[in-house]
């Protein structure tokens, strides 16, 4: 397994505030990695750095040896919030993806949309949050790329829809491709991961294979993080 994504000593601050601090980790081909941590811990910042939407203060990101701005054809990216015009229907989004990405499989996108029981002519602004998320997923998972990066694909969505989004991810990602998925909802998705990288206040607090963690700690990933995290915050009044 060779390295698909390599992040080295990456730092990015927002003024005095910490964004991400000296982060290093690599993603191998075929790995599904969970980027975990509470809101505001640097997950989205890290993903934006990988996508070239933010510039680092120091350190480097390489995707198959390329810098982010030359690697967009290698990554299918689902942002935290929509990146489509709210007036757009998926038809227009499919057209854009078809225009720009040679690897976009329109038939697959339409099939996924059908499975989610969505209409490609319905404007995004008339869809519920869950419907929007599914529509975006149909768009993003229908590219054939070595790396999928999904930023909080399940936040703000009811549990029933979460499951169908998870199934959508699992059933549609390209075998052999890697997946980096950020979430603060660990328990829902921990079955999905090979490895979890836990960010805390901009730092990598933990980077471990989940099956090793379960075997060695005798706990679920979710439970492990709850214990790990709670004392650091005083251990009272978990919200």
């Amino acid at each position: 397994m060779s390295k698909l994504l390599e992040i080295q000593e990456l730092t990015r601050r927002y003024g005095p505030r910490r964004g991400v601090e000296n982060i290093s980790f690599a993603l191998k081909e075929g790995e599904i990695v969970g980027l975990l941590g509470p809101n505001g811990c640097g997950k989205t910042t890290l993903i934006k750095l990988v996508m070239g939407l933010l510039q680092p203060d120091s350190g480097s990101v390489l995707i198959q040896g390329r810098v982010p701005r030359e690697a967009h054809h290698l990554i299918s990216y689902l942002p935290e919030n929509t990146y489509l015009g709210e007036w757009m229907a998926m038809e227009e989004a499919f057209r854009i993806f078809g225009d720009f990405y040679a690897d976009f499989d329109r038939a697959k996108a339409e099939r996924m949309l059908g499975e989610f029981q969505l209409d490609s002519r319905q404007p995004l602004k008339t869809m519920s949050k869950g419907m929007q998320e599914k529509a975006h997923l149909a768009l993003v998972m229908s590219r054939h790329v070595p790396l999928y990066i999904l930023d909080e694909p399940m936040s703000g969505i009811d549990p029933a829809a979460r499951q169908s989004i998870l199934d959508g991810i699992l059933q549609n990602y390209n075998p052999g491709s890697s997946l980096l998925l950020s979430t603060h909802l660990i328990s829902d998705v921990e079955m999905l991961f090979d490895r979890v990288v836990f960010l805390d206040d901009g730092y990598v607090r933990l980077d471990r294979y989940v099956e090793d963690l379960r075997a060695e700690e005798g706990r679920s990933v979710d439970e492990y993080f709850r214990r790990l995290y709670a004392p650091a915050k005083g251990g009272v009044h978990a919200s």
Binding site: G30, E31, I32, Q163, L170, Q171, M191, L192, D194
Partner: peptide
């Protein structure tokens, strides 16, 4: 492997293992 992964909703690498 892939089929099992989908049925049980788990990571294919886990099934592979």
């Amino acid at each position: 492997v892939r089929e099992v992964a989908m049925i049980y909703g788990v990571n294919p690498n886990t099934v592979q293992r």
